[in-house]
């Protein structure tokens, strides 16, 4: 049985026998007539599972929907999850945002279907089969190119990129890890970050978001894909991920019991600010 056939059968079974009340997957097409496009697909009727599709064109991270109250109200929610999304789910479990009583994983990979998994099984699968998920090579090359610039060149590069940001916050909405009910950019007593879509406010917003994802980002790329202005957000996230791995050995999304780098400290930290 091929991937899609197996996925459809399992999804329909989950809905039919009541183990899940909602399946979130992908379907072909969407708006317009673009059949090559893959869009999120919400299913409550098992008969509609026939339209489920998974392939490499499925870019959106469906774990982002688990933040929405109207989705959480329909637990159990079955989510079609390729490896980066599985990692998001395991990290969300580590951060106490999802549990086995909210979500069940329909685990997929490139051309393979791994079955219906709970969070512990998802983490075990990731460690066994996808332990070497790395920052994409083209992102690493671009990070190195920018790292080789002088400080002035680098500042000019990012100033030009951030100048296009209109502060729509699509990056935040597309990211499953941006689940704060009130984002720091919206806190105005005091106002930490300028809301103006210009200059230092844009700089601060994009950099702070990268910091908040350091050691947490599972490099799914949904933020960059959602950005209407084509800002290379993954360069920031990739750099932060590299640094978190180098300094703290952070490997987010492989162990639901692991404390995230940004949410933990060690009393024996080698820096003395903690003491």
């Amino acid at each position: 049985m091929d991937l899609n056939q197996a996925l459809r059968t399992d999804a329909a079974a989950l809905l039919s026998d009541g183990r899940a009340r909602l399946v979130i997957g992908y379907r072909a097409g969407g708006a317009g007539d673009d059949a090559a496009r893959r869009t999120p697909f919400f299913i409550t009727d098992p008969a509609r599972c026939d339209a489920l599709v998974y392939d490499a064109s499925c870019r959106q991270n469906l774990a982002s929907y688990l933040r929405k109250p109207e989705v959480r109200a329909r637990s159990l929610v079955a989510v079609v999850a390729p490896p980066p999304v599985m990692r998001s789910l395991v990290l969300l479990a580590a951060e106490a945002q999802v549990t086995d009583s909210l979500v069940v994983v329909l685990a997929v990979g490139e051309g393979v279907y791994h079955g219906v998994l709970d969070i512990a099984q998802t983490a075990a699968l990731l460690r066994e089969k996808y332990a070497d998920l790395a920052i994409p090579a083209e992102v690493v090359r671009e990070i190195e190119r920018i790292a080789a610039m002088t400080a002035e060149e680098r500042a000019a590069f990012w100033t030009a990129e951030f100048a296009r940001c209109t502060r729509c916050y699509a990056c935040r909405a597309a990211c499953p890890l941006c689940y704060c009910t009130r984002c720091i950019v919206e806190k105005n007593v005091p106002q930490w970050i300028s809301m103006a879509a210009a200059g230092h406010g844009n700089y601060a917003w994009n950099v702070i978001r990268a910091f908040h994802l350091a050691g947490r980002c599972t490099l799914c790329g949904a933020c960059e894909a959602a950005c209407p202005q084509g800002i290379p957000i993954m360069l920031l996230n990739g750099l932060a991920a590299e640094e978190a791995a180098r300094a703290f050995d952070a490997r987010p999304g492989y162990d639901p019991a692991e404390k995230p780098v940004i949410g933990s400290f060690k009393p024996d930290d080698k820096a003395d600010f903690i003491k």
Binding site: F42, E70, V71, Y169, A170, P228
Partner: peptide, 17 residues
């Protein structure tokens, strides 16, 4: 409305473009 509302991520990109 609910059907569309479920899928809408709540990013503001459509309104900005």
């Amino acid at each position: 409305w609910q059907e569309w509302g479920l899928a809408c991520l709540g990013c503001g990109a459509c309104t900005h473009v």
